[in-house]
Nucleic acid binder design. Sequence first.
DNA 1: CGGATACTTGAAGTCAATCAAATGAGGTGG
DNA 2: CCACCTCATTTGATTGACTTCAAGTATCCG
Lengths: 272, 272
Amino acid sequence: MDRADFLHRDASGKSLANRYGKAGAKSTVDDGRSFHKGGEIPYQGVDIASLQCLPDHLRDDFGSTWGELAIHMNPLPSRTKIFFEDDRFGAIYAIRSGSIKKSRLLKNGKEQIVGFYFAKDIVGISGVASQRYTTTAETLDTTALCIVPFKLLEEKARNHVATKRKLFELFADCAEADQKLIRILRTKSADSRVAAFIVYMVNHFSKRGLSDNHFRLPMSRKEIANYLGLTMETTSRSLSRLANDGMLQVDNREIRIIDRLGINNLAGVCFI
Amino acid sequence: MDRADFLHRDASGKSLANRYGKAGAKSTVDDGRSFHKGGEIPYQGVDIASLQCLPDHLRDDFGSTWGELAIHMNPLPSRTKIFFEDDRFGAIYAIRSGSIKKSRLLKNGKEQIVGFYFAKDIVGISGVASQRYTTTAETLDTTALCIVPFKLLEEKARNHVATKRKLFELFADCAEADQKLIRILRTKSADSRVAAFIVYMVNHFSKRGLSDNHFRLPMSRKEIANYLGLTMETTSRSLSRLANDGMLQVDNREIRIIDRLGINNLAGVCFI
DNA sequence: CGGATACTTGAAGTCAATCAAATGAGGTGG
DNA sequence: CCACCTCATTTGATTGACTTCAAGTATCCG
């Protein structure tokens, strides 16, 4: 079985998450090992105690709250599915680098993108309520993850108030992301939606210590359009318009913000 | 202080929920008593053990899981605020009869309606993560509620697996409602959005033992439009069109479904 | 280099927002 | 009980924005 078969679930195959979902706390490491077995990316062992594994805001005062629970994974290639909608829930995933899109498969076979996630984000938590992942997660470029088996986390949360609180926060973040998308989709103007998307992206990146005026989009125009409830053409035209109006420089997927105030005003309509 | 002043928060006033939020498990009953103090609706005492208070699906095999935690309230008049966005979270509310809308206040003072709720629904649970209500809840007509102080519920959930599971379910329902709205808002056609709304309403009612082909809308066209991301005029026109096409009978707020299949097909676009 | 895919741009049509006005329903006070 | 007022709703006409269909250009990857 080659890696593509393994990672991209077919009729009989199982996604990464499904394997982790079935793993007890004890056997998690072994499953982590088997995940990359025979893959092009060699498995280099589990860095159980790695503090680099998890984002700063997930460490407690001793610097180790979740690090000791997390399994440090080697980078996954672009367009790798991490878990599928309706897969049994078993772990949450912290992004160390790269990017992920979350989507739902509609009954007509089309996908509905419900969010984009980047370094220091956590994905998969929304599955805890129903014990199944509510979305499919897929890498947009080479992406390094930490797997945090939920059973361990839950156990820790039982006696550790800070962990419990953090779990609740992650939950609240999920809901807030949905509300943000609802606000965007209620906005009529395509330009405002696109501006809101750009502002969201740059805020997200700058909050994480990256440049506050330029970044590279890891997703296609089609995917942006899908997320924003527009067509690819309209999204492209909006970006061109924003560039023509001197608000942005657009060079393929490289975006540079020229008129931050203008963009904010335009995006503001989404959040008024 | 008259009731209107008390229920509709002004600069110094507090909503019902804020009072409950500050109440400990012990003093909840007293706060419940004080809520109606001086109001036109006389307070008749707390029906602690009332099994009628909560919907069937919130009872365990012994018929009393949540009933013993709930405070049975007298009906509130139409257009009464139950809790406000950002109020301190303290209790969840089970609707016995009537209807509620949940909304968020946008920065420009406009409201954004995010959901409608009816008998046997639960509202307020989304506040648990951030310990603040994430929306404002308001009755649309005369509405009878049960208040379930969350501290008691949480305590029960600690040792009672079924309660814990039910809490998770309620959480998942919240998220699912958001996803439903996202699907609707991504739908281009106004007719499809309105059809989806009608289908949602009738399904909701028929699942709860009411008629599966007619019902009365408790909310205005403006509120439907707000929820669906349309204007009032477009919503009205869509309803007229559906009526003209022989799918519905519309008499003011009374709706009767004539062509269930046609409506479903049209609405289906929202859920494909 | 060549094929495929991603992206941009153009032209035309459709549909919802907007502005405007008329009608209908509900509530109030005489 | 009716006149009157207010607010909700419907309906009409117009305008503008987004989609759609179509063609051309750029970029990526072997």
